[in-house]
Amino acid sequence: MILNMLVAGFGGQGVLFMGKVAAKTAMLEERFVSWLPSYGPEMRGGTANCAVCIDDKEISCPLITRPETLVVLNTPSFERFTDAVKPGGRVFVDSSLVDKKTDRTDIDAFYIPSTGLAEENGLKGLGNIVMLGQVLRQTAFTGLETLVQSMKECVPASKAFLQEANERALRLGFSYCAVQA
């Protein structure tokens, strides 16, 4: 599978949006894709996650129980999902928000201070996009320009003014050199 990614965090962190931007690249590249959110009664503030599968063949099951790629943007998600990552897989941790490290040695762990990076660069609230840039760097599930294009298509016209900042956040995350644990 080209991408088998679970993104988890709090509602309002852009978890679902981040997954959607990744999913949309598959549309541009005419690949098969599914995007499956988990949802609770709370629209904001609760836990949220979404599963994105991209493949060259039909996606049999959109549900991800053993992610190859895990992105965690808060501590509860780190605790809940890190053990589920497939051996040989990878976890991306927003180290600005999660003060923990995994003991697992059979997966790659990337600790990216994405929220902090975004804030330092005047991109407050775009930590999710910074993280997506880094995911791209490490997984190469698509091309950078495809991802930029996908983001353009995911941002509604009413928020088009965010486009420039979004793109900057993506490139920032992409060029960030993580210290691999």
């Binding site: 959607k20 999913a23 598959a26 549309m27 098969f32 894709v33 599914s34 995007w35 499956l36 959110p37 949802y39 996606i59 959109p62 549900l63």
Partner: peptide
């Protein structure tokens, strides 16, 4: 069901 309803696919 809720899973199909909430899921995005092409």
């Amino acid at each position: 069901d809720g899973m199909l309803g909430q899921m995005m696919e092409p």
